[in-house]
Every structure is written in C-alpha cells, then in structure tokens.
Simulated assay, not measured.
Amino acid sequence: MRFPTRALGIAAVSAALLSVGVSPAMAEDGHVRARVQTFPSGGDSGGTSEADLNFTAARSVTYNNWTINDTCPGDGYRVIARARALLTNGSYANGAWHEDDGTCESAQWGPYSGRELNTSYNIVKAGIQVCVDLGSSLKCESEFRDNPHT
C-alpha cells in the first residue's frame, strides 16, 4: 500500500505538536512585565509591574502572581498599576489602580493571584499598565498579550 509523502509529513508534524502539548491558549497565556522610568534620561528610579495572564474566555482574563514595585533610587513619586485590556470596539477596559504604597525600600504590592478582568466586549489583548504619579500627570508604560479566544 502506498502512502502519499505529503500526508505522511503532515501526520508527523501534527503528532509532534500533540506530543509537546501546543495549543492556541498556551501560546498566548503567559507573563507580562512593564517598566516605567521617572526621568527621560533613564536610570533605575520608577517602577515595574508584572503578572501571569490566563485568558479564560473571549471576555475574561485572570491575573496571577501580580506585583507592583517602586524601584530605587527613590525619586519621591508613588508607583501605581492596573489591569488593562483593548476591546474589539476599540476602547480600553481598565481595572482599579493599585499601588506600591511606600518608598523604594518598602515591600512590593503583591503577589496577588485570582484577580479577574471581565468585560462586556471581547478582549483583543490584555496586560498591565504601570505609572509613576508625578502629581500633575502620569508617566506610564504598558505591556500586553493577545487573547487566543478572539
């Protein structure tokens, strides 16, 4: 019996992917980390926020091992962060602000797990936004991951 070479190649690749457990959700769930620097010249002052994202549906994402950290040397500004998602209608859904409520020497906020962001529109991508609160304005950076359910 003759088996076409092309079909054999497709079968081999499919079997290899199944054996390592690759799925669309695994490819998109994962870690995000955003860093903001207080001063344009760089340096270490500012803050970071990071989390592990788990997309549970087209309109839902769970944040695990989420932290916010004010980085040294101290600049005297507080660091805040929130969950953020780009929706299919072009707008953003935002979670509540959380802060590392101390100086750069204080313990970080978190890690917290099981924090959910649920929306009324499908989520295109989700992540975190971290900001230095300069008083009259915010200086922010964001990092996102694509939602495999949309």
Rank of each mutant, 00 (worst) to 15 (best):
G135K: 09
A107E: 11
R35E: 07
W66M: 04
D44A: 03
N147Q: 10
D100Y: 01
A25Y: 08
D44L: 02
D44R: 01
A27I: 13
S142V: 13
W97D: 01
E116S: 11
G42L: 09
F144E: 10
R35D: 05
S41V: 15
F3G: 03
A7R: 06
V61P: 02
L8D: 00
F55T: 03
D44K: 00
E143F: 12
Q37K: 08
T56E: 04
H149Y: 09
V79R: 01
G76Q: 09
D100M: 07
S113Y: 07
D29C: 12
G9K: 12
V61K: 01
D101S: 13
N54T: 11
L134T: 10
S136C: 04
S136F: 11
V13P: 02
D44N: 03
P148D: 09
W109D: 02
L17Q: 09
T38P: 04
Y77Q: 13
N89Q: 06
T56W: 00
P4Q: 10
W66K: 04
A12T: 15
E116R: 14
R84D: 06
G43Y: 12
S19V: 13
S41E: 15
L17M: 12
V32M: 10
R82H: 08
T38N: 05
N147H: 08
S45A: 14
H31S: 08
S137R: 15
A126P: 02
M26R: 15
Q37R: 10
Y92W: 14
C72W: 02
L53A: 02
R82F: 01
L86G: 06
M1S: 00
L53Q: 02
F55C: 04
A85T: 05
Y121E: 15
R6S: 07
I10F: 05
E105M: 01
V130I: 14
E105Y: 01
F3I: 15
Q129T: 09
R84W: 03
R78E: 01
T150F: 13
A85Y: 05
A25I: 15
Q129D: 02
G46V: 03
V22I: 15
G76E: 08
S137N: 12
M26A: 12
P4E: 05
R115K: 13
S91C: 03
S106N: 11
M26N: 14
G21N: 12
A11E: 00
A83P: 10
A93W: 11
P73K: 00
V22T: 14
N147I: 09
T5S: 04
Y63S: 06
T119K: 13
A107I: 06
T48I: 15
S91N: 10
E28M: 13
N54E: 07
P24K: 07
Y112I: 15
A12P: 05
G90N: 07
S41P: 07
T5V: 07
P111F: 02
G102P: 04
L87M: 12
G30L: 08
H98R: 15
L138T: 09
S14G: 15
N69R: 07
S60G: 08
V13G: 03
F39S: 05
R2Q: 06
R84S: 10
S106G: 12
C104Q: 00
C72K: 00
A85I: 02
L87Q: 14
G46Q: 02
W97E: 01
N94K: 09
D75I: 00
G76I: 11
E141F: 10
E116C: 03
V36K: 06
R145N: 12
L8I: 07
G114H: 12
M26Y: 04
G114K: 14
G114W: 10
H149K: 06
